[in-house]
Design a protein around this nucleic acid. Sequence first.
DNA 1: TCACCTCACACTTTTGAAGAGT
DNA 2: AACTCTTCAAAAGTGTGAGGTG
Length: 367
Amino acid sequence: MMMDQAHFGEYLLRQQMLHAASLSSLQHRVGADAEPPACEARLLNGDLWRRFHDIGTEMIITKGGRRMFPSLRVSLSGLDPREEYCVLLELSLVGRRRWRWAGGAWAAAGGAEPQSPRRLMLHPDSPAPGHHWTANPVSFSKLKLTNNTMDAQGHMVLTSMHKYRPRVLVVRARDAAALAWGAPHASFSFPETEFIAVTAYQNDRITKLKIDNNPFAKGFRACGQSKCKRKNVEPENGSTEAQNESSDAKRPCSDAASSCSEEGSLRSSSPRSPPLVESPAPLVASPENISPPEHPTFYPPELPYMHPLHMPMPLGMWPTNTIPGGFLGSSWSSVPPPPPSFPTPSNPPAPCRRIKSFTISALLGEG
DNA sequence: TCACCTCACACTTTTGAAGAGT
DNA sequence: AACTCTTCAAAAGTGTGAGGTG
């Protein structure tokens, strides 16, 4: 399970190659002649994402890095089983606005702040043959978000009070360096996965939903010891305004609500967290759901994401621990995730969006 | 005063080493 | 000797709430 020094060094080299490839692609636009096989992506935990999206998903960002919950878990299909692919995750800024929580709702509050150098996260299984990607759900559960612009851990650097949308990129490439030489690719994003980065939760309903679904927050559930202990300080039903929107998160959660956890329950046998039963058919990226890049070529001058001088680290995610071991061979790839469910005939998967003229910058193109 | 950020805390889950059993 | 299973301590991941910052 542990990655030794040699493998760790190899991984770092691969990340550096990806970085170099992305930079060189700024000068080399190479068209993709080969027609890629039709590929599809399904959001496996789309039901949970939708529940958060209905309220207004918030993701905590911290100096040391915080995981996303829910995490992004997709199932890929339609890839050539013998071809090598790299899978990447990108977090795109949605709009050019800053948001603020006011009056119980999110509202635009001026223009976006300059963004930190953007980073892609290269899935640690990359590159891998198509059959690998289609046989196993692709999970980005170990991804961490940070607001630390000096971050050296390879976490995704986001800006608080800004909205982002994850995008999964599938690139046909034998290695990271080959990403710059025009391999056909696909891009998938799901509107349900949009979120606003925050340093502290603003919406109490989001807090409640996170507590009810995240196994690590079980201690804060109404039935948890921690919550009981903390809530003893203040009366459980101290307020007569039970309908007060802001008090939602403080109310005890129902057993039904607490039974719906994400990944933990999928592999956990905890009696308090039965396996998550999601919607019968996972969310499928329909053509209209696959959002094209807002700006298909380069970043605007005022947001120089990709400037080499502002790229302190190689693209992609570094090991969670910077010491050897604990990255490759972790649950990312060695623990077989639950098999992906397949769409019902009434909900057929949609083809991927194909971008003929391939460059990393085009892939990243939005502003 | 306000909006936002940081940190220590208590709690739960995850991880992996060690030992026992087959 | 090799493999599987169980146990347990340490590490990691949570939201909370007080306090800090500009």
